[in-house]
């Protein structure tokens, strides 16, 4: 690669201002790690931007890090300060704190695992074609499906099996622009008679489920990929087993799979 030409092309200036596509960003990242001269150039561009911005701000700001620190600590302080008057309330407070801590650690760990899982998904994605061709769908249908799942702007989320069915899994391919979610449930067991799977879009803080729809005719859908409309700003997806016709809110005891969207 002609590095001088690459630098002169102007791509690095666009890289620093954040004006490139995700794919181009990745390319620059790789080149940068291969060629120190490119990294030096990127740093110099960044410096120039920083200097100009600092000059605009002129150090007028009086805010300090302690303002921010107090805002990110705020939640913890609230819990600790709860009650002194009644003992049982204090115990409840501590118990809640402890539960929160354990919960947070668990979530942190879970989150890390999910992230690893998501990375693996990218590889798994490549294998998807194989997986799909194993299904009994007609070639045309498969081709159409492939085109959808290969779209550049599609996001792939792996939903992991939960307590009730640890070996289950599902995948969601979410095209935000088209507001469509393709639910691949080849990894779910067939639902028992009278029951149906229902898909939920979740926002996490506070945890709010929104119904995306039920997976009707599970057994006769040969490729086990369902298309649902998703207009939500989903942070996670979950699938529960519900009575026929679906439920208004998810039955969490019957939560089969759950996965967090890579932001």
């Amino acid at each position: 690669m002609d590095i001088e030409k690459y630098i002169k092309s102007g791509i690095l200036e666009l890289y620093v201002s954040g004006s490139l596509s995700e794919k181009e960003n990745q390319e620059v990242y790789e080149v940068m790690h291969q060629y120190p001269a490119v990294k030096t150039e990127v740093e110099a561009i960044e410096q120039a931007f920083m200097k100009v911005s600092e000059a605009i701000g002129n150090k007028q700001s009086d805010s300090s890090f302690s303002n921010i620190k107090s805002r990110i600590d705020a939640k913890v302080v609230e819990i600790e300060q709860v009650p002194q008057k009644r003992n049982w309330l204090a115990y409840a407070g501590w118990a809640a704190s402890a539960a929160l801590l354990v919960g947070s650690l668990w979530l942190f760990n879970e989150n890390r695992q999910l992230k690893e899982e998501i990375q693996i998904t990218n590889t798994a994605n490549t294998n998807l074609e194989d997986q799909i061709s194993k299904a009994n769908e007609s070639a045309e249908k498969m081709k159409a499906l492939n085109t959808i799942l290969r779209a550049e702007n599609i996001e792939s989320i792996t939903l992991e099996g939960q307590a009730i069915s640890p070996n289950a899994y599902a995948k969601v391919f979410w095209n935000k622009e088209a507001q469509l979610a393709y639910i691949d449930v080849a990894g779910l067991p067939a639902p028992p008679p009278g029951k149906v799977y229902q898909v939920w879009s979740l926002t996490l803080d506070p945890l709010t489920p929104t119904n995306l729809g039920i997976l009707e005719n599970f057994n006769t859908n040969e490729n086990k990929v369902f298309t649902l409309t998703n207009t939500n700003n989903s942070q996670a997806f979950g699938i529960t087993l519900e009575p026929e016709g679906g439920s208004a809110t998810p039955t969490l005891a019957q939560l089969y799979t759950l996965g967090v969207v890579k932001s």
């Binding site: 911005s53 605009i56 700001s61 805010s63």
Partner: peptide, 23 residues
């Protein structure tokens, strides 16, 4: 923080609001 304050200030053009946004 100084450079980000500058970027924010250029957009909102008000010191107090820019500090709020910076935080």
């Amino acid at each position: 923080s100084d450079s980000m304050f500058g970027v924010i200030y250029a957009i909102v053009r008000n010191k107090e609001e820019a500090e709020e946004v910076l935080q």
